[in-house]
Each structure stands twice: as C-alpha cells, then as structure tokens.
C-alpha cells in the first residue's frame, strides 16, 4: 500500500523542489531586503499582494515547498535512526503539510482584491 502511494508524495516533492529552487531566493530578497531597505514601499506591496496573480504565485510558493520539506525531513529523520517511527512521522509531516496547505488556500481565497 505504501509503495503505491509513493509516486504522489514524490511528485509533490519534486514540484516543491523545483518551485522553491526557482522562486524562493528572489521572494526572500523581496520580503527580507527590498521592503526593509525601502526599495519596495509597504503601500505598493499591500496593493500587489491582493492581485490574483500574486495570490496564485503565493499558492505555488507555499503549498509545494511544504510537501518538499515534509518529504525531505521524513527521510532525514529516518536516516538519523528513527526508522521504527517512520509511519508516525509520515502522518505527522505530511499531515502538517496538508493542514497548512488548506489553511493557505482558505486565506488566499479570502484575500479578495
């Protein structure tokens, strides 16, 4: 049973790896450097974040990297010797990714323009 579900988690992991590799650095620069340095005004950022495309962008950048992180952390913890707890860890990690994703989707939908 676990074997047949593996491709789902793996493709979410792969998508998350690619999306965060391409988009996370520039986004971190925007929220962590451009805003504090005043290169991007808070007012403009507030306007921008409500745009449908910005919300789609945030959806991609929140949801897929969560599954990427859950997958990598699961295997890291297993490699560190928690092999016996693999089932529990999988439920906790993938479960957290699912719950946080639903929360993100609800918030992004509520963030109407």
């Amino acid at each position: 049973m676990a074997k047949t579900k593996e491709p789902i988690w793996w493709s979410l992991f792969g998508a998350g790896g690619m999306i965060s590799a391409v988009l996370t650095p520039i986004t971190v620069i925007l929220t962590g450097i451009a805003i504090p340095a005043g290169l991007l005004s808070i007012e403009a950022f507030d306007r921008l974040i409500h745009h449908p495309l910005a919300r789609l962008y945030l959806f991609l950048l929140i949801v897929f990297p969560l599954f990427h992180g859950a997958h990598r952390l699961l295997f890291t913890l297993v490699d560190l010797g928690l092999k016996g707890m693999r089932g529990t860890l999988a439920v906790v990690l993938y479960g957290s990714a699912i719950v946080l994703s639903i929360l993100a989707i609800v918030l992004l939908i509520r963030l109407s323009p």
Binding site: S20, P65, L66, A97, L100
Partner: peptide, 12 residues
C-alpha cells in the same frame, strides 16, 4: 528544506 518550509509558514 526545513528553512524553506519555515518560509512557507511565514508566507501564510
């Protein structure tokens, strides 16, 4: 990946 997932939570 933990830092990146942490950033996802920050974005939420």
């Amino acid at each position: 990946s933990a830092f990146i997932a942490g950033y996802s939570i920050f974005l939420i």
